[in-house]
Nucleic acid binder design. Sequence first.
DNA 1: GACTGGGAAGACAGGTCTGTCTAGTTTCGT
DNA 2: ACGAAACTAGACAGACCTGTCTTCCCAGTC
Lengths: 195, 195
Amino acid sequence: MPSKVIASKPSARERLLAAADDLFYSEGVQTVGIDRIVAQAGVAKASLYNLFGSKEELVQAYLDARHANTRDQVERALTRFRTPRERLLGVFDAQGQLFTEPDFNGCAHMTASAEARHGSAVEGATDRYRLWVRTLFTDLAREARVADAEGLARQLHLLYDGAGVSARMDRDPSAATTARAAAAALFDAAVKDAG
Amino acid sequence: MPSKVIASKPSARERLLAAADDLFYSEGVQTVGIDRIVAQAGVAKASLYNLFGSKEELVQAYLDARHANTRDQVERALTRFRTPRERLLGVFDAQGQLFTEPDFNGCAHMTASAEARHGSAVEGATDRYRLWVRTLFTDLAREARVADAEGLARQLHLLYDGAGVSARMDRDPSAATTARAAAAALFDAAVKDAG
DNA sequence: GACTGGGAAGACAGGTCTGTCTAGTTTCGT
DNA sequence: ACGAAACTAGACAGACCTGTCTTCCCAGTC
């Protein structure tokens, strides 16, 4: 008989999201069926459909949870840096941390988007994620008094995406280091142009 | 009655590859079934399995054909440029051309890789493609007498990948222009460092 | 004219998929 | 203690998947 101090079993919703995160991320959204999700979560199929309504909405929730997690990790990592330049480049340091996690398998939003049908509901989640990245870079560039902050942010976003692709397809976590070096060069060039 | 001058109907293999290119590229490898391929190609299912052996090998052939096509288009585009710097940046001009094609839907190798199971046979095709891009940038950087040609090539490859991602996910073909500008800055920085 | 072989058409097997439904059980607030 | 809400278990429907197999057709070739 468990005492009240022991945390109760996570709710069905939490277990479903945990199983979805594990299976969808490691094997893909299309190849993982509902049956495997509910089996791993130890949840009845009816509960899944009561809680989420459809597989597509579960995928959306999975992507939003990933988004929130990435945002927290990046923002926490950025608190360690002082100067605007360091903070801007720190995004790639945080990315490098994500690349070295043992079950890293690329950007979840990219792979989910590649698997989704055009015009699918997951596009909303991917758009939200990409807007956050873009805004993050733009804000950091503004903090650093870059003249064309939006322009630099677009360039850095390309590096960020490219690093995510290379880390997965080339199985090369050092892509983040390469991206950081390129970002530093682009930042310095953007600052000098204005100065 | 067709005269001998009129080209005969393409072979079953050619029609299968054309249908695979159309359907796989626009809708994805997983969502398109064999039945739709053979229906659009006007080919018997048995012919597909006689010619290719499995769906996975058809996917590989589709990716290799895309690779060859992209290579031809890029190499042809590069003949218009003279200086090493222009030739190196010309890769992004060629990429911008691809982005504006009416049925553009991102890099086929990226989406196929995202849909494939880990360790699948399509990884061979994507590895070949990525090696070609990497080698192309390295050779162009060497032609331009860049000191750290491999290092610059890695950075440009990130921009190339990132532009492909952004063009598809942000529905923004101008990503190639952004990548070109960033590549120019990185190139100039790499040249100046050595000089 | 007979033969041969590539291809067309489609039935079929065996499996998986999403989503629904019924029915029984646990949990919890009051 | 009791009723409501949440959850479990699993059968089921209807569709789709890959891959195999049989049967037929038709164009060349000797």
